[in-house]
Write a protein that binds this DNA or RNA. Structure first.
Length: 362
DNA sequence: AAAACGGGGAC
DNA sequence: GTCCCAGTTTT
């Protein structure tokens, strides 16, 4: 099928067909009741690489805490991270905060109203700029997200590897061509994504009830499972985290993660990372600042082991709880500070740490 | 161009 | 286990 050469019937019927499908199948979602760019922006950042079902409660939470961009600009980054806790990709929350302050203080509280200027904001890439530009301002610019890749690859039978730059250009060009035949660009963009999420799903698309069945290249050639083509990801990195959980009275020692690493600006315990699993805490080689501290404490209970799987690394963590005398004369090493359990609850933490605290200190 | 960046849900 | 989710930034 040569979809690249000029206009054909499918290219003109595609958008209207999806828009019609959308009117009957669209879900009732909170961010679909507004054209306020702040609400649209917030919803789009939350939904990056995140399922609607997972993101929706976070959207409600954020809108409730920060009804306007000025409210968000007034908040501390730490509080945004705390609200974001559990959603992952925490740079989204940090960029959210940065952009809220920029819009409030440099742009008089008004979001950029077009694709090109939206693209300049931190955390807003090509997809999100197109989403906000079309949903909030009606600009005729196509969104190309995971749903769109899947729908277009199948309907138009495109077998390019969607992780490559050339393929991204191919899909963007096609989407741009298709949105020209749409009635309302915002509705078309919503429709194609909703269609991908509900009808043209990754594993078992509902081809029997599909309005594009007889036009769909993948259906007609039996390639629904083969499209889109996507290169396999590299194997995940194995990491071994040995956490020393210092405890004294009703306080525990935490530190903020500041390195260019996973969970930046979140809080965890004193961490000794090793390049293989350690049989016991005796095998850990303690850095100088910790020697005296550990010598003064005693290990309580048995080590707690857990595994946290991220998209790009598998973290095997062991927690050693070390009880220190109430009036320890040895100061905590730089970075570590004492927090009550209540204070710790208010700090943003990786799920790994939150789970541990809930189970053993909750 | 490739890697880094979370966590959860569906199969 | 595998795949993928309304992607962006850094290397």
């Amino acid at each position: 099928m040569n979809w690249q050469s000029g206009f054909n019937a499918l290219e003109t019927t595609f958008a209207p067909t999806l828009e019609r499908w959308y009117e009957h199948h669209k879900r009732d979602l909170p961010w679909r009741h507004t054209r306020d760019p702040y609400c649209i922006w917030l919803s789009e950042i939350i939904l990056q690489q995140t399922r609607v079902a997972q993101g929706k409660p976070y959207y409600e939470r954020f809108i409730n805490a920060y009804p306007t961009v000025a409210d968000m600009a007034r908040a501390e980054e730490r509080d945004l991270l705390r609200l974001w806790q559990g959603l992952g990709y925490y740079s989204r929350a940090r960029n959210l905060h940065q952009t809220a302050r920029y819009v409030t203080h440099e742009l008089s509280g008004k979001f950029p109203d077009n694709f090109r200027d939206l693209l300049k904001m931190k955390g807003i890439g090509v997809y999100t700029a197109a989403a906000i530009a079309s949903f909030a301002f009606g600009e005729r610019v196509p969104v190309v997200d995971g749903n769109v890749y899947r729908v277009l690859a199948r309907v138009f039978g495109i077998d390019e590897d969607i992780t490559t730059t050339t393929a991204k250009k191919t899909f963007a060009r096609l989407a741009d061509q298709l949105i020209q035949a749409a009635g309302d660009p915002a509705t078309f963009n919503q429709a194609i994504m909703e269609f991908g999420a509900i009808q043209c799903t990754p594993l078992s698309p509902d081809c029997l009830l599909c309005p594009l069945q007889q036009q769909c290249n993948a259906y007609l050639t039996g390639r629904q499972q083969r499209l889109p083509v996507k290169a396999r990801k590299a194997a995940v990195r194995e990491r071994f985290f040995n956490y020393l959980v210092f405890k004294s009275g009703d306080k525990i020692a935490l530190r903020e993660r500041t390195a260019r690493d996973v969970w930046q600006n979140l809080y965890d315990f004193c961490l000794l990372e090793t390049d293989e699993v350690q049989a016991s805490w005796r095998e850990l080689t303690l850095p100088e600042p910790l020697v005296a501290l550990v010598a003064e404490g005693k290990l309580v209970g048995s080590p707690v082991q857990t595994v946290q799987l991220l998209s790009h690394q598998r973290i095997r963590a062991v927690f050693y709880t070390i009880e220190l005398p109430l009036q320890s004369i040895v100061p905590l090493p730089v970075g570590l500070d004492w927090y009550t359990i209540e204070e710790a609850g208010q700090l943003p933490k990786p799920v790994l740490v939150t789970n541990y605290l809930e189970k053993w200190f909750g």
